[in-house]
Design a binder for these strands. Structure first.
Length: 253
DNA sequence: ATGTCACAGTCCCTGTGA
């Protein structure tokens, strides 16, 4: 089973790239973030032609998450069941695996109210995962907007005092791992940065100024069944790329 | 920190978010 997570930064603007990538890579399950689409605009018909069932939690101008699957899709859940008005998490059962596509709030700055929202949101996710059915495999993927460790940052000194690297954010990720989940990319590549996002500005991609903020958390048994994890950097090149590259995990189930 | 991109509004520019 091949599972990918990709923040596409507008599925409307990115559709030509997304479609080409799906045809070339044919992942079984794709966790999408930042569709920036209403339900009416989501390309259900086009995805069906490519062999994908899809579930979308859309909002319109901002946010929006989706799950695409070639191995079945059922039991869709949207949000945490609280009063969060932002479309940032969707869950479903695909091929016997419970999957979640997550778009964690950016945080903006440590003294911004949005940063507190980010920490609360991560706590809600940890609570949800703590309550999960342990008899089923789980993949929790998405744009976490947190670089778990300094190795996940091109130059830690540049980001000092900024969001994405603060200790409370990193602690929140550890509390997600503490529910029995493994950061798959780091497990399989202990010493490689494996960046997944590069700012559009400053020629950051060309200069290698990246962060690893797109993560795949999987249960321990799935981590042991993993055969590969990689970032498709080619998707960050060429015409109209997203600022994120897809992160892929492969498992022999 | 900022050499960009995408969105909405009421447009061929500005504000906002990332």
């Amino acid at each position: 089973m091949k599972v990918a997570t990709w923040n596409v930064n507008s599925l409307t603007a990115r559709w030509p790239r997304v479609e080409a990538w799906l045809v070339e890579n044919s992942p079984d399950v794709v966790l999408i973030q930042e569709t920036k689409q209403t339900e009416a605009k989501f390309p259900f018909f086009e995805l069906d032609k490519l062999g994908y069932e899809a579930a979308h939690y859309g909002q319109g101008q901002w946010n929006g998450v989706a799950i695409l699957s070639q191995v079945g899709l059922s039991d869709v859940t949207r949000g945490f069941g609280d009063d969060d008005p932002e479309a940032r998490v969707i869950g479903a059962r695909c091929g016997g695996v419970q999957v979640y596509s997550c778009y964690v709030p950016n945080g903006r700055a440590l003294d911004n109210p949005h940063y507190q929202y980010k920490l609360r949101w991560l706590q809600s996710l940890a609570d949800l995962l703590a309550r999960r059915d342990r008899s089923i495999h789980v993949v929790v993927g998405g744009d976490f907007n947190v670089a778990p460790q300094d190795i996940d940052v091109y130059d830690p000194s540049v980001l000092e005092g900024l969001t994405h690297v603060s200790e409370p954010e990193r602690k929140a990720l550890r509390s997600i791992e503490a529910t029995g989940l493994v950061d798959l990319t780091r497990r399989l590549h202990p010493d490689e940065p494996c960046f997944s996002w590069w700012d559009y500005r400053n020629g950051s991609f060309r200069r290698g100024w990246g962060l690893r903020i797109d993560l795949l958390f999987v249960d321990e048994a799935l981590a042991e069944a993993a055969t590969a994890s990689y970032v498709d950097r080619d998707a960050r090149k060429g015409e109209k790329p997203s600022d994120h590259a897809p992160v892929v995990g492969e498992f022999s189930l």
